[in-house]
Computed example of a mutant assay.
Amino acid sequence: MREWLVQLRKEKKLTQQQVAAGAHIDRAYYAQIESGSRNPSMAVASQIANFLNVNTSIFFSEHISEPFMIALTNSPIVVAHCDLKLRYTWMFNPHPDFNTEIVIGKRDDELDLNEGTSGLLELKKAVLRTKGPVRRKISFPLSDGLLTYDVFGQPIYNESKDIIGVATVSTELLT
């Protein structure tokens, strides 16, 4: 079951029929994709992702190459993408306080309000404003204490070279 997809659809107050129509696919096929009994092709995943305003790669995150997963899983590195509204469209290897199924479609300030989330939002806004990379140290109050990350953000472009979001890589720093 793709719980993140069900939750995202429900948060947007959409029915399976509305998503299927918006993605130009059959509702039954969409229901199978949502239930996890069928995997969408790259083209269909792209159509659904475009309609829901998320990154297509979220459909295939469980198929990320093994060396990448081995290297980053349980590492102090978090990789994420957000759209122009600063809503998460993809996340890999988050801190245990965060569940990717809940994070997708939300802004940092909708997940928690603190100096860290404010700083992260400001970094993302700076990336969009400058149309270039931004790097800052940002501290977050998390369940295991105040953790400081070296956060690097850069624009994400579409095929037409338009900025469509921000990619971030956050590395936990030892104190």
Rank of each mutant, 00 (worst) to 15 (best):
E122T: 07
E62S: 10
E122P: 02
N99H: 08
I64D: 00
S118Y: 08
T89M: 01
H63S: 14
G116N: 09
G145E: 08
F98M: 13
D144A: 05
K124E: 15
L123G: 02
D109S: 09
R129S: 15
T100F: 15
K85N: 13
S65K: 12
I70L: 15
A80I: 03
L128H: 04
Y88N: 07
I104M: 03
R87E: 15
I104E: 01
E66Y: 12
N114I: 01
T117W: 05
L113K: 13
D108W: 08
A80C: 08
I104C: 05
L121H: 13
F68M: 14
M91P: 03
D144Q: 15
E110G: 07
L84F: 05
V127A: 00
S118M: 11
K131Y: 06
P67D: 08
T117V: 09
Y149E: 02
L113T: 11
R107T: 12
V78Q: 10
K106Q: 10
S65F: 08
V103P: 01
S139E: 08
L128T: 02
R135H: 06
H63N: 14
D109W: 07
T130C: 07
L84T: 05
Y149A: 00
P141Y: 12
I58P: 04
H95S: 01
L113P: 06
L147P: 08
H95A: 03
P76E: 12
T148Y: 09
S57M: 15
S65T: 13
T100K: 15
E115H: 14
T89P: 03
R136A: 12
R136Y: 09
K85H: 10
I102S: 04
L146T: 12
D150E: 10
A126C: 04
K124Q: 12
P141N: 15
V127T: 00
L111W: 09
T148I: 02
N114C: 09
E110N: 10
R136C: 09
R107M: 12
S57Q: 14
T117F: 02
A80N: 04
K85R: 09
L113V: 13
S65N: 12
V78M: 06
T100W: 15
N74M: 04
A80M: 03
P67V: 07
E66H: 15
L120G: 07
I70P: 10
E110K: 11
S61G: 06
D109F: 07
F60T: 00
D144V: 10
V134D: 03
T117Q: 03
L86D: 01
G145V: 10
S61K: 13
R129F: 09
G116V: 06
F60D: 00
N74C: 04
K131T: 11
R107L: 03
I102W: 04
L123N: 04
V151Q: 02
K131L: 10
P76S: 09
R87T: 00
K125R: 13
P96R: 07
G119M: 13
S143Y: 04
I64K: 01
L111F: 12
L121S: 15
E62R: 11
L120A: 09
E110Y: 04
S143Q: 06
T117P: 04
I70M: 14
F68R: 14
D108C: 05
I64G: 00
T89H: 02
I58V: 06
N114W: 04
R135Y: 07
C82N: 10
I77M: 03
C82T: 08
V79G: 08
E110H: 03
E62D: 15
E122K: 13
V78L: 08
S65R: 12
T148K: 11
D109G: 07
S139W: 05
M69Y: 09
T89N: 00
D108H: 05
S118P: 03
